[in-house]
Write a protein that binds this DNA or RNA. Sequence first.
DNA 1: TGCTGTCTTTGCAGCGCTGCAAAATCGTAG
DNA 2: CTACGATTTTGCAGCGCTGCAAAGACAGCA
Lengths: 346, 346
Amino acid sequence: MRREVTLRDVAELAGVSSRTVSNVVNGYANVTERTRVRVERAVKELGYRPNVLARNLAQGRSGQIALVVPYLDTPYFSELLQSVIRAAKVSGYNVLIDQTDGDPEHERGFIAHGSRRLLFDGVIFSPLGLDQQALADRDPALPLVILGERTSDGTFDHVGIDDVAASRQATEHLLDLGRNRVAAIGDQPYATGEAAQRRTRGFREAHQARGLPVREDLIIGTPRFNRPDGAHAMAHLLELEEPPDAVFCYSDLVALGAIRAIVSRGLRVPEDIAVIGYDDIEDGRFSNPTVTTISPDKEMIAATAVERLLLRISSATPPPGLELRAPHKLIVRESTVGRSARPPSA
Amino acid sequence: MRREVTLRDVAELAGVSSRTVSNVVNGYANVTERTRVRVERAVKELGYRPNVLARNLAQGRSGQIALVVPYLDTPYFSELLQSVIRAAKVSGYNVLIDQTDGDPEHERGFIAHGSRRLLFDGVIFSPLGLDQQALADRDPALPLVILGERTSDGTFDHVGIDDVAASRQATEHLLDLGRNRVAAIGDQPYATGEAAQRRTRGFREAHQARGLPVREDLIIGTPRFNRPDGAHAMAHLLELEEPPDAVFCYSDLVALGAIRAIVSRGLRVPEDIAVIGYDDIEDGRFSNPTVTTISPDKEMIAATAVERLLLRISSATPPPGLELRAPHKLIVRESTVGRSARPPSA
DNA sequence: TGCTGTCTTTGCAGCGCTGCAAAATCGTAG
DNA sequence: CTACGATTTTGCAGCGCTGCAAAGACAGCA
């Protein structure tokens, strides 16, 4: 493996200084057409390509951002990841992934004061169990954008949809169908469950707005938002004396798990129990039945997060931490209205 | 944002040379206990953390590998990604993701001679439509491991399962159920469809081994292996005069799409048509019905790929390109045997 | 005590690039 | 023809680390 071509090699061939080559390569303004052409020819002739490592060191930045998520095999996160990568690439940034496996210790370590760094210029973080303490201990110099959980304390940006409104809308949809024993699966009534609690709030608001009582025993907590959580919770609900006739699930995976539990007991969705999910992952568009859901604008969330993060990175003085809302919409599919919605394919 | 603590700062405080500090930090052998302790104390006191960028430049390597996949929202790839990240981390490597969106031009560019590089020390590549030409044009100095498609030409490693054997096994499972009009969805009878063709070969072998004729009109091609592909192909099959009573799908997504198409026409799986998939993605474990599938050992595939890649990276002379096989197994679920298989949860 | 071999520490150069400020060049007005 | 401002080019230092080879310390042995 012979030595790579460097700026200096190009400079020599083109008969200019290496600094000028650098200027051309980086597209700086004040370069005469004549020199530009000469340099470009030399670049091509030698097959020069910049050494990113050296550039990074000289500039003191890595050109990379980290995306920290709990799990990657969760469709919501992988779909989000896809959008984040796309958005970052536009600005010439690479994305490093870190999976926390939902481990709070790991999450804390990532943003902790004095953690390893310099590998990335900023972090987009979708924490699962990040408490106040962790946020307080974090490296204040690390540009940070948080997705989903938490609300901003003013030192970082937070991007998400209006969970309360969306959840209210989802619940209202169920009530509109004439269901009157509506359950909720996914509550997390503890410090790290902010996002879940906002959904529960929307659930309550929908009932209150119609003067309906909330059946407290139909609000089921789950440690996570995965299929098994949904299946377990649903199994529990089905054993009640008076099972629900509709369920608001805090994620599509929970909904899929719940549907699975319902169907495996010989009941029908939505005839016996209507189910609505949250996230609009692809699975729900092809499941049987297809899943009615709240669809957050993921592209927008990703683009906004990246944009704000890059702003933070390039700002001398940190901009104020904003609370940013992406739009969402209700997508009605079979799990609440049955086959009347035509199948999505074929 | 004040200056970061450097090796030299630590050296000064500890009263040793900066080179010695480097030795300690990197855990080199020949350091006296006394100096080690002194240096470590100084490191802690100043809160020193190595500048990865500088280290990379000095070492001429980036400590990063790239994983290039067509899509990230495809569960198979995101599950694989997860395993790759995990395996790479063990060896201190970071993973950069690149999505090609299945664009052959993009795929080519990534490994092309003279492409941007240095950002990663090697590439794990899961190509969709990489032809001979692209492989020939590739940068020979770039350590490369390929997953899935293609077979090795000796200049790179290829990691995968034995597709032919697995497909044969899947088909035999359907035949064992007494089905005699078995279809296959996913063939790709053109240059870039090697993986698909191996599956078709296994499909044929299973028939031949039992002296059964292969119904050529029941082998359906699809451009990709996604849900809509499965749904379309299945819709076509259902319109035949004599529709199949079993289907071997070349991915679980195809299977899910096919099931969707079957069910939406009021038919039952597996009573009317048995369906088997390939990949063992999580979706198939919770779908309705759950999907019988070929389960490749993804952890093993990822670990092997990373291991071989790192070997390539650290070798002065490139090791021979190997053809590596990870194990797989048949997992029987409801889509072929019905509810007799107990539901996976609740 | 002097010499040799081994272990530990050091100094220097340099990875390839960019920031900075000075130098050179150019165009134009006086 | 000179002077001055604007534009273009250059040289240098240095980002913070590691490779290399030499120097120093130390122990063992004659």
